[in-house]
């Protein structure tokens, strides 16, 4: 169960559950937008489309949580923050699915992590 899905974000989540990583892109200035919203903050345009991204990115930070803050997720676990290859100010969090601990600057690719309710989340490796 993903809390707080809204009218702007629902298509992003639905695509993710189809194992498609898409992002909004401004039809006028070409800027990638994150998180989803109705207007381009760069040029003011309301024209945009969902476009696929490669799923390639670079780790910009990573943390290891040793305290179980949330039910259902057992500590310790690592979380990574990845800047997309398409535009480096689109930073996505995700589960770490690499073989060794992540490192800042490491090139990674997205994987889809299926959840019990039918949704998918992002992992990186």
């Amino acid at each position: 169960m993903i809390p707080g899905i809204d009218r702007d974000s629902r298509p992003w989540w639905e695509a993710l559950s189809r194992h498609e990583l898409v992002h909004q892109r401004c039809d006028d200035c070409g800027r990638w937008r994150w998180p989803p919203r109705a207007m381009c903050g760069e040029c003011g345009s309301f024209a945009w489309s969902w476009q696929p991204v490669t799923g390639d990115g670079v780790v910009v930070s990573h943390i290891r949580t040793h305290h179980s803050f949330l039910p259902g997720i057992e500590a310790p676990y690592s979380t990574v923050f990845v800047a997309l290859a398409e535009q480096d100010d689109v930073v996505l969090p995700g589960f770490w699915r690499g073989d060794s601990e992540p490192a800042i600057g490491q090139a990674v690719r997205a994987v889809f992590v299926d959840q019990e309710g039918g949704e998918s989340l992002l992992g990186w490796r």
């Binding site: 809390p3 998180p35 930070s61 949580t65 803050f69 979380t79």
Partner: peptide, 23 residues
């Protein structure tokens, strides 16, 4: 609004947010 992209990953609390900066 941003919480939906964070909470499912077990990433929801201030010490986690500022650990990202610290690292």
């Amino acid at each position: 609004v941003e919480f939906q992209y964070q909470v499912p990953y077990g990433y929801a609390t201030p010490p986690q947010q500022f650990a990202v900066m610290a690292r």
